[in-house]
Amino acid sequence: MGEVIVVTSGKGGVGKTTTTANLGTGLAQLGYKVALVDADIGLRNLDVVLGLENRIVYDITDVTGGHCRLRQALIKDKRYEGLFLLPAAQTKDKTAVSPDQMKALCEDLSQEFDYVIIDCPAGIEQGFRNAIAGAHRAIVVTTPEVSAVRDADRIIGLLEAAELRDPKLIINRVRHKMVAAGDMMSIDDIIDILAVDLLGVVPEDEMVIITTNRGEAVIQDDRSRSGMAFRNIVRRITGEQVPLLPLEEGGLFSKLRRLMGFK
């Protein structure tokens, strides 16, 4: 039986959908069979991030409502053997699916796939409750900002209350230069506050915007730093021990220079 992982954050705009797309693509690259589920009903997005928006026929509510079979609604990504998307409905709202239906759906998917990754909507209302209902474990995405970390803390509390213990943290959009200058919270600061295990750190990277424009995942780009970070996270998900990327660009010397006022 496969593993069901929910990607959540509380706050919107921190990179849940981008993370889901990259983890799914990365796992498929390693040869796993992966189903990505867009649980953000009414605000469908994972399809465009993956470049699959033109191929949607049925969506998640058609499956839960019994209008089609699960297999019919799953869109196969032609670039990767083993990568599938179950899109969200765009014209319905979050009450169109119940937690029990979601649980059953995850159960069905995990029979057939190695990994089922659920893209959770922002917020803590029913969309969130639906998204976590069938999950075995949770990944919390945050950015080094007060508002995002605060919401992550709330989400971690809600996950624990729902018996989803030991969520893993991804810190997204880290700017190492600002961290070095003391103008952005560091990885240690955030881990210290949230007291959860770190799954990975993704640097701020323009390539994410460029690849998303094209409907591709940045993990496909071999040279980008964010792609490398996502590849490491994917390997950690499969159980491999992978050290963190070196955080400071340029290291001690450039730090010293900055300290002494040379740019």
Binding site: P144, E145, V146, V149, R150, D153, R154, V179, A181, G182, D183, M184, M185, S186, D189, I193, L259, M260, G261
Partner: peptide, 28 residues
Amino acid sequence: FITRIFNRESTASKNIAKERLRLVLVHD
């Protein structure tokens, strides 16, 4: 240079962020 070294820790904006977070989370 000297003031930079001595003021760094207390004025760095990340410390303000961290302190505000810590407090708000106690309430949360």
